Simulated assay, not measured.
Amino acid sequence: MTLTVLFAAGDAAFADYEAPLTRALSEAGLDARLVTEAAPEDVDYIVTAPNGWVQDFTPYTNTKAVQTLWAGVEGIVGNDTLTQPLARMVDDEGLTQGMVEWVTGHVLRHHLGMDAHIVNPDHAWDHQAPPLAAERTVTILGLGTLGTACARMLATVGFDMRGWSRTEKSVEDVACHHGDAGFGTALDGADIVVLLLPDTAATRNVLDAAAIGRLARGAVVINPGRGPLIDDDALLAALDEGQLSHATLDVFRTEPLPQDHPFWAHPRVTVTPHIASETRTDSAAREVAANIARCERGETLKGLVDRDRGY
């Protein structure tokens, strides 16, 4: 029987995904038709995004699973009408590689002090070599797919790597901490902290004044995860006081970041417009098709969302 896959992530996204996703479904051995309209009772799978046009999932009584194209699901996981299994994008190789490149680039930028040489209007000749990576402690908060990939890459550069996660994890060459007891230990004395946690009730404002105070004096904060992970007021106060030397932020509570937000004008804040990583069409299409094939074989969906945890 031919499967009906409803693409509900919007017309603009469909223009990009129609050909690669149709091809990926076929290459996965699936007899499937990809559509943007269908009678709800005929839909076997829904491919969407948190801002997709299907917001009431109640009529889709025969739908086996909903696959989102995004890694973050905070915009959809609380939808009470969504009772079908929900899977998030976790193994898109393009998304992962993009995040690894962005995080590695900005960690190295701050580690090497590149800004002082890129913008040097006084032509200062400050002959001070940076420390080696092994002398710099980098902590990654969040050891999911993205956090683990970034930690591994930074470990190969030679940084003294730490990681923290809600549950126990093990990553080679990374000192892994978990739970409430391990949170402070992961932060204590860290020179650079990278936030790659999901946005949940338990993680909002996880980097508050107390957490920032545990970092090394003059530490750097890098946030490509989610805007609400940081207490903005505490961050600005720490930058002004000198506890932090810089913050590079890619995500914000309100996006686009309002023009009058103090982050724009602060001399020790770098704003990037939510570009740390994007779902790449071809690789994401392969992951969507592979997950549908898993479900058809009776296997557990990859990236299956735990509603209680929120991700």
Rank of each mutant, 00 (worst) to 15 (best):
A210T: 13
T4I: 09
W53K: 10
A276Y: 00
L215E: 01
L86I: 08
D199T: 06
A129M: 15
E135R: 12
D122E: 15
G147M: 04
L187S: 04
G78F: 05
G72W: 07
A211V: 04
L229V: 10
L154C: 10
D240E: 14
A19K: 14
I292F: 02
L236F: 06
Y17P: 09
E27S: 12
A155F: 05
D92Q: 11
L3H: 06
A124R: 15
V100T: 09
I140V: 12
D122N: 14
L30T: 01
L257Y: 10
E74R: 06
T272P: 02
A181K: 13
V138A: 07
A71I: 10
A285Y: 09
D31G: 00
K64A: 14
S165A: 15
H117T: 10
F183G: 01
A265D: 14
S277D: 03
T167Q: 11
M99I: 05
A237E: 12
L112R: 15
T254C: 04
T272L: 08
T4R: 07
N291D: 13
L108A: 12
G227W: 08
P262R: 09
A247E: 05
L6W: 02
I140A: 00
F263V: 10
V206Q: 12
A149M: 09
V77N: 02
V221D: 03
R162Y: 13
V269K: 04
P20L: 02
A9E: 04
I118T: 13
D260K: 11
G182F: 07
Y45K: 00
A87V: 04
N62P: 00
G144L: 06
G113C: 05
A210N: 12
L143M: 09
R297W: 10
D208A: 10
A124Q: 15
A210M: 03
G147K: 01
L112P: 00
Q67Y: 10
H274F: 05
D42Q: 14
R23V: 07
D80P: 15
D173N: 15
A289V: 06
D208S: 11
A116C: 05
T270C: 00
T81A: 12
G75Q: 02
Q84W: 05
T139R: 08
T104Q: 13
L249E: 07
T63I: 05
A65Q: 03
P273R: 04
